[in-house]
Write a protein that binds this DNA or RNA. Structure first.
Lengths: 257, 257
DNA sequence: CGGTATTTTGAGTATCGTCAAGGCCAGTGG
DNA sequence: CCACTGGCCTTGACGATACTCAAAATACCG
């Protein structure tokens, strides 16, 4: 299969890189209305079904999108990282709750003004559309991971997604001599909510991967990945995280550092 | 929680109802370029990573979107029914394979001409955007269902989604004196691929629901749902399928028939 | 350094996947 | 009209896996 551009990865460190293709006036207008908002870890940003009056772009940190079930469970249906847009633009209420998984900074744009700007600027409109298409693709990736019966394999997929999606985001992914170190920015409980299981199983799965020699657990949340190929094989989806692309990005990072 | 408009349901029987809000010229232009294509059950429409040169709208039947894993598994990441748009517009290759789950009719629009029309008609552009947002919501619903550990509960969620999403689509959902009858338009194997399990488990789960008195299995694919509340409770997501809305739609159907 | 939350480990139970066999239904051909 | 065949659904038995509950160990924070 030929190398195709991977829409999922970002290789620059600017949260607003989604907007670089926009014309000068549009960027000016966005800059004029943007406002940096901080959320401490654990804080709720929106509830389910609640209208929010701004469009947000994550500047730093991680947000989790989650549903609330009547039995008290909180399955996570997606993560938002640097550069991701949230706050459905045209469609009133968001169907998911958004909470800060880590300390987070968000660029907020007043919703009405953002929408009028979208109507005037086809490029902005398209940037938003592409962002949503990306989100759709990623959600499907999570579905594929969740459809895996064995938890070890789900965790393998989780680690790979962490690698590819968080490359270039803060200090979450770093190339080492012996592999790739990822800094998982959430608790075992959150990981369990994301992978449809319980924290104990996550722990066991990670230690099983360590046992198998695929990873090393430096601290509970700092995982050194020794064998990306082995993980990819467990998941079964070759281009889930396009390992080649990942390696290129890591090579770039090494050049930079 | 107040009644909010449910974007997931359709209560008219026209596949092109997504376009009713468009202006006259746009509809004329679309009508001029549309072409009805038939696919027999089981036929592949697109492979993963393959570019397709048309934008499709399902006229009748069911399509399944699926990924292909290296180990030969084919997890299903979504279903397309009457009125659903597919064939990502701006973003070249689709990341999923699309196959006909049943005999299907599709309105095909040449992609280039469709895109130029989109650029000229903000309403069309927005209709497509809304369709994608819907798809995103539905994919998250599947994620929530998949994150359920017990297969019985996943099947319960599956049945509810079938009810709400397929109301008004062909003869798949019908109101009865004693409940709601759904006609599942796919095999146990497909259901298993969708719910991340195996056909045997689907069978056992359905019979467990029958044992519990929640449903009656008339034929393997014609399920009479006796207690939607019990199913909803298993899933835990109250507005997954907005039961009240479902009941209204069924009431309408009865008035029509 | 102490206190707290998180992670890990353990043991027992429930559930699911697997493999194999049997049953049901539709379509086919005698 | 009936027997046959093939595909799908169902059922059973068994091993593997994950969930539950509890306790211990570890990491984190001041």
């Amino acid at each position: 299969m030929p190398d195709k551009p991977d829409k999922r990865s970002r290789n620059d460190h600017n949260a607003l890189s989604v907007f670089t293709d926009l014309c000068h006036e549009t960027r000016e207008a966005l800059g004029a209305m943007q406002q940096l908002v901080r959320f401490p870890a654990g804080q709720a940003i929106t509830r389910e079904g609640e209208e929010i009056n701004f469009v947000g772009i994550v500047a730093s940190g991680i947000l989790r999108m989650q549903k609330t079930l009547t039995d008290g469970r909180h399955p996570i249906v997606g993560l938002l990282v640097e550069g991701d847009i949230f706050g459905q633009v045209f469609d009133g209420a968001t169907e998911v709750a958004i909470e800060a998984a880590t300390d987070t900074e968000v660029y907020a744009f007043p919703r009405g003004r953002f929408e009028t700007l979208m109507r005037r600027s086809p490029e902005l409109d398209r940037a938003v559309l592409l962002n949503i298409l990306n989100e759709l693709d990623r959600t499907r990736d999570w579905m594929v991971i969740l459809s895996n019966a064995k938890i070890v394999n789900r965790v393998a997929g989780f680690l790979l997604i962490m690698c590819t999606r968080f490359v270039g985001v803060e200090h979450l992914v770093q190339a080492r001599r012996d592999g790739i170190e990822v800094n998982i920015p959430m608790s075992r409980l959150d990981q369990a909510h994301l992978l449809g299981t319980r924290p104990e199983s996550i722990s066991r799965a990670l230690h099983a991967l360590a046992e198998a020699g695929d990873i090393i657990i430096n601290t509970p949340n700092r995982i050194l990945i020794l064998d990306t190929g082995a993980l990819a094989e467990r998941v079964g989806e070759e281009d889930l995280c396009s390992i080649t692309n990942l390696k290129n990005l890591l090579a770039n990072k090494e050049l930079l550092s």
